[in-house]
């Protein structure tokens, strides 16, 4: 019995993996860029939240 993979009939299905890869790459690049640029003061502040230090400033 000859069986043709039915998804081959969707026009341009190969675009899907390509689009997803690009999307992730862009997303990842943006997040990385943000993280590198992030304000050191904010990072230190957020990092210490679980330790419940007395009276931290609220910014």
């Amino acid at each position: 019995m000859k069986f043709i993979n039915y998804l081959e009939t969707i026009a341009g299905v190969s675009i899907y993996p390509l689009v997803s890869l690009i999307m992730f790459f862009v997303f990842f690049a943006v997040v990385t860029f943000y993280v590198i640029k992030a304000d050191k003061h904010y990072i230190d502040r957020a990092k210490n939240i679980p330790l419940e230090l007395p009276n931290p400033s609220q910014d």
Partner: peptide, 22 residues
């Protein structure tokens, strides 16, 4: 909390979060 010290890298945790859920 248990080690009484902040997480090693908060920046890394941000990347960890977004990349992981994506």
């Amino acid at each position: 909390k248990a080690a009484n010290r902040p997480v090693y890298s908060y920046r890394l945790s941000i990347i960890h979060f977004w990349a992981l859920i994506f």
